[in-house]
């Protein structure tokens, strides 16, 4: 049998397999490939028998003396079919809740990078706030860090008591989601290069701290209104920034602290650990944005805002500590029990 004939006899089957792949890549089902003839199990059975014969063709390609172009076509075809047969699971709906409520807190609790980022962020923030607050000891600190114009602008914008309309709330929460979460995601992405991430984190901490310190001075007029504004969403937003940077640092640390893995494997491993932290951070950003859009600028009495702030801090602590506390390894328990049984015997 000449090769041309052999190819001609095989080609319809290969093309059918290719059609199956098309249909399955698009919808995950086989019915379109056979125009509805083979649905469900029958289609899958047909698909796998076609796949097996293509595998056999590929295995015998050398014996059949198939031309190289045909062999490489078969390689691609078998690869495609293999991908469909053993396809990775799509995102399950409970996959994301597991990611955020089970995996993320544990990662955050155990991750030193998050701690480093939190220390850097909150440390610099407090330091900068103190420096800006002590006008006598450190004159012009706040002005030189945050810029005189920006401070003036902030002051004038908070001089009026908070009293925004509903349309303002909706618009601003949209804006905050877009803007602040964007900063967080950017901070995360820069983390793989470490230095830019630390720079973004530190500069945000210092700038924010300077503004806070300036506003906290007794002679600043808008101070009260400013703190009324930031109290409600502060816990969510500041934590979210620190988390995003921590997730980013986790990526970057994987580059040089490989723990015996190859460098590439280490980056992969660390990146997959960083994803839940980043997801938690994004969730916090969104919640902060809604608070910032609706509650913060509203004329609600300060008590409610303070209550919400305390509640959100409590929620975050619950999330990090209670959900994140490492469970005892079940194997340990089993061993202990066995030991007890052994002792008893």
């Amino acid at each position: 049998m000449k090769i041309a004939q052999r190819l001609q006899s095989r080609q319809p089957q290969w093309e059918e397999l290719s059609r199956f792949c098309d249909a399955m890549e698009l919808r995950g089902r086989t019915d379109r490939a056979t125009k509805g003839d083979l649905v469900g199990a029958a289609g899958i059975a047909r698909f796998s028998s076609l796949y097996r014969s293509a595998c056999a063709d590929l295995a015998l390609a050398d014996a059949y003396q198939l031309p190289p172009a045909t062999v490489s076509y078969l390689h691609r075809l078998v690869a495609r079919a293999h991908n469909q047969l053993y396809r990775a699971n799509r995102l399950k709906p409970n996959g994301w809740t597991d990611l955020i409520f089970v995996e993320a807190p544990k990662r955050i609790f155990a991750d030193p990078c998050v701690r480093i980022a939190a220390v850097v962020f909150f440390g610099l923030f407090s330091l900068s706030m103190y420096l800006a607050f002590q006008e006598q000891s450190f004159p012009m600190y706040a002005e030189s860090v945050a810029g005189e114009q920006a401070l003036q602008q902030a002051e004038t914008s908070f001089e009026q008591p908070l009293n925004a309309s509903f349309s303002h709330y909706v618009t601003m929460s949209g804006f905050y989601i877009q803007h602040n979460t964007g900063i967080g995601l950017r901070c995360f992405a820069w983390g793989v290069l470490i230095v830019p991430c630390l720079y973004v984190l530190a500069s945000n901490a210092i700038q924010l701290g300077a503004v806070f310190g300036y506003m906290a001075r007794s002679e600043t007029n808008a101070g009260d209104n400013f703190f009324q504004f930031v109290t409600a969403h502060g816990p969510f937003e500041l934590t979210a920034i620190a988390l995003a940077a921590g997730a980013g640092l986790r990526l970057g640390v994987g580059l040089f602290r490989t723990k015996g893995l190859t460098r590439v494997d280490s980056v992969r491993e660390n990146a997959s650990r960083a994803v839940p932290i980043m997801a938690a951070s994004a969730m916090l950003f969104v919640m902060a944005a809604f608070t910032e859009g609706f509650l913060s600028p509203s004329p609600v009495p300060y008590v409610f805002k303070a209550l919400w702030s305390i509640l959100s801090s409590g929620l975050i602590s619950f999330y990090f500590v209670i959900l994140g506390f490492p469970e005892q390894e079940p194997s340990d328990n089993l061993e202990d029990e066995l030991q007890e049984i052994w002792d008893a015997a």
Binding site: F166, Y169, V170, T171, S173, G174, I177, Q178
Partner: peptide, 9 residues
């Protein structure tokens, strides 16, 4: 306002 918020989102 919802449109503006939707635009941002």
């Amino acid at each position: 306002p919802f449109l503006v918020a939707a635009t941002f989102l």
